[in-house]
Design a protein around this nucleic acid. Sequence first.
DNA 1: CAGAATCCCCACGGATACTG
DNA 2: CAGTATCCGTGGGGATTCTG
Lengths: 134, 134
Amino acid sequence: MAAERTISGPCRAWPQDSVFIREVLDRIGDKWSVLVISTLGAAPLRYSDLMASVPGISQRMLTVTLKGLERDGLLTRTAFPEVPPRVVYELTDLGRSLLSAVMALASWAAVHHGEVAENRRVHDDVGVGRRKAG
Amino acid sequence: MAAERTISGPCRAWPQDSVFIREVLDRIGDKWSVLVISTLGAAPLRYSDLMASVPGISQRMLTVTLKGLERDGLLTRTAFPEVPPRVVYELTDLGRSLLSAVMALASWAAVHHGEVAENRRVHDDVGVGRRKAG
DNA sequence: CAGAATCCCCACGGATACTG
DNA sequence: CAGTATCCGTGGGGATTCTG
């Protein structure tokens, strides 16, 4: 008899992979983390440069995001004891390795976002069509 | 020449890539989408099987997530006109292509989640250390 | 079995004001 | 310049109940 209809556990092909996926998504699934990581992927930047380079981010969220990423060792914070103060953020090797994986997602999006948009349009049109036809 | 200190625009190395990244994250950055996609990556499943295979998801969120993914053409919904009803969800080619990119993230997590956890612990210890040392 | 509908909490994140 | 502190609206998502 064996398996064939044994789903039982959390999942089949990815035992605790689901846990890992959730961990990563809890980390970079927020609104700003990957934007910050991507921006720092090009070059180390100071706080004010990040504010300018990540359009729409608020001071609060930039700070919160940076602290979170620093906590996980994805970037380093270097404060120079000058006046006026200067603080530079830079990706760690770990952060850069994550950037690669994120870029894979970005590539997927670049290739398929049009298709997704089209699917969405068609799907929504069917919806209104049913209402008119019904 | 020139440049070197020209950050100006949104970002440098990824003009509208940031837009694409945000699109993907708005799609899969939620709490359940990638779990559902990953689960369906192993095999097509019916609604109740998904409930069992994605631990912790509620009926509401499974339905909402499935509808969103179907809308974007990442999976198909097939309802068999039987009683009791039977509905099977299956990834489309588009969904499977996204699964590949998601798996890249999962791999990163599988390799580095320990390192991240360690960084986090060290960082937090320094925090309490400062409080005790201060 | 496979949802739809409703209620409601709370934490993510924006705006603003203040500080070393 | 590089933050911190506070207030507060919005919506993501959980629990529960009802239906075809």
